[in-house]
Design a protein around this nucleic acid. Structure first.
Lengths: 224, 224
DNA sequence: GGTGGTATGACAGTTGTGTGACAAATCCGC
DNA sequence: GCGGATTTGTCACACAACTGTCATACCACC
C-alpha cells in the first residue's frame, strides 16, 4: 500500500485530493500547513508527498527543501500558478514533479506511478519487512519463513501486511475488519478464522504462535 | 558534459532546441525520426533524450518504449498537445517528464537537472536479462529457453519485457493492460490469455509455471 | 467450575484463473 | 492490391482456490 501525504491549506481541495487518492488505491492523509506536514512526515513517513506552493507560515519552497533534507521521498508540487519561474524554482528546491491546478486525478495517479517506477520508492518504502525468520515482501507479493516461500491467499496477505505495518501494536478485530476488508460492521469471528489460517502457514507451532499473537480481549499483533 | 539527444521531426524546432541546449552548456544533437533517434542512442548513448510525440513512421510512444527497453536513460517528452490523456500515456510508456510546446528553455534546463539529480543508475540496464535458463534479449527482440530461440509474437514480447523489467515484482492485470497495451480501461482477461500463450512457449510445464507465475488476486510476476 | 473469549474443522457459495474455439485484424510475400 | 498465414482479442466453460459462516471444542481468567 502506498501512502501519500497531502500538504495543502485549503480544506476543500485537501479533502478532495485525499478522497480521490483513496479512490485510486492509495492511503492518503493530509496536513494543513508546512509545519504540520513536516512533523507528520518525520513521525510516519509517507511514500509520496504532495505540496501546495502557497502555504501560510513556512511556504512551499521551504517545505520542499526541508523534506528533501530529511529524506529523499518523491515530492510532487501542486500549484495554481503555472508560471515557468515557479516551476523551475520548485524543481530546483528539490521537487520531482509539478502539476497545475485543477489537477486531473488520473494524471496525478500516473505521475505518482511514474515517480515510483523510477526507483525512488523502492528505497524509501516497504521493500521487505523482516520479523525474525519471517519476511514479507509487498512488492513481490510474497511471504517467506526461514527462507522458504509460503503460499498465502490475498486476504491473508493483506491481513499480514496490515499487521506488519503496525508491527508490535495491537490491532482490534474491528480495526482489522475495517482496514483489511473495508467493512464498517460485520462479524469479528471472520478475523479469527483468517488469523488462524495464516498461523497454520507462517507459524512453526500454530498452537503456540511466535509472531502472530493474540491479546485476549484486545485483538492481534505481529511480534517484532 | 551532459549530452542530450533531441528527437523531433520539425527542422526549425529541432534546431532551436539544439541551439538553446548548447547555450545552456549541454552537448546536443538531433534526430529527425524515431528510427534515427533509436539508432543514434544505441550507437552513442546520450545522458538525456527529448522526444516529440508526433513523429513520422514509428510514433513517439513506441519510441519511448523502445528507448526504455534498451536502457534507463531519462526521457523528456516535448509535445504540442497538453491533453491529459497524452501526458498519462507518455508517462506510462516510460517517459520521465512531459513539457508542452512552446518550451521555455530555462524550464527544460531545470527539468533536465532535476531528472539527473534523481540518480537513475538503479535499474539493470543489461541488454540481455537472464532468468534461470530463460534469456530475454531486448536488443535483438529475442527470447531463448535452454539456449534455443523461442518464437514469441510482438505482444507476448512486450508483455515479457514488462514483466522482466519488474522482475520479482507483482504486476496487476490493470498495470499490464496500461503498460503493454496502453489501455486505461479494458477487459483484464485479455492479459490472462496472453500470459497463457506466453507460458505455452517459455515454460517447460505450462500448467506448473516456473517463471511466469500467477499470484491469485494480485496479478502476475516473473520469478527471478 | 462457570463464563466469555478464542481456535479450528467442515461446508457451500463465490470468485479467480486456465484454456480451447472462433472471428476480426494484421502481416507478409508475391 | 491480393490471398493465405499469423496474430490478436472475445467469449464461454470448467475447474480449482478462496471466502465467509457455522458449529463445536478449547482455553484463560475470574
Amino acid at each position: 500500500m502506498t501512502a501519500v501525504l497531502v500538504i495543502e491549506d485549503d480544506d476543500r481541495i485537501r479533502l478532495a485530493l485525499l478522497l480521490a487518492l483513496e479512490e485510486e488505491g492509495y492511503t492518503a492523509y493530509g496536513a494543513a500547513s508546512a509545519e504540520e506536514g513536516l512533523r507528520r512526515q518525520r513521525q510516519d513517513p509517507a511514500d509520496n508527498v504532495l505540496v501546495d506552493l502557497m502555504l501560510p507560515g513556512l511556504d512551499g519552497f521551504d517545505c520542499i527543501r526541508q523534506l528533501r533534507r530529511d529524506d529523499d521521498v518523491p515530492i510532487v508540487v501542486v500549484s495554481a500558478r503555472d508560471d515557468t519561474h515557479d516551476i523551475v524554482a520548485a524543481l530546483e528546491a528539490g521537487a520531482d514533479d509539478y502539476l497545475v491546478k485543477p489537477v486531473a486525478i488520473k494524471e496525478l495517479s500516473a505521475r505518482l506511478r511514474a515517480l515510483r517506477r523510477r526507483g525512488r520508492a523502492v528505497v524509501t518504502s516497504t521493500a521487505v519487512q523482516v520479523f525474525g525468520d519471517l519476511e514479507i515482501s509487498a512488492d513481490a507479493g510474497e511471504v517467506r519463513r526461514a527462507g522458504r516461500p509460503v503460499a498465502v491467499t490475498r486476504t491473508e496477505f493483506r491481513l499480514l501486511c496490515e499487521l506488519a505495518q503496525h508491527a508490535g501494536k495491537v490491532l482490534s478485530r474491528q480495526q482489522l475488519l475495517q482496514r483489511v476488508w473495508g467493512y464498517d460492521t460485520g462479524d469479528e469471528r471472520l478475523v479469527d478464522v483468517h488469523v488462524g489460517r495464516l498461523r497454520q502457514k507462517i507459524e512453526e507451532d500454530p498452537g503456540n504462535p511466535r509472531y502472530l499473537v493474540t491479546l485476549r480481549g484486545l485483538g492481534y499483533k505481529l511480534q517484532r
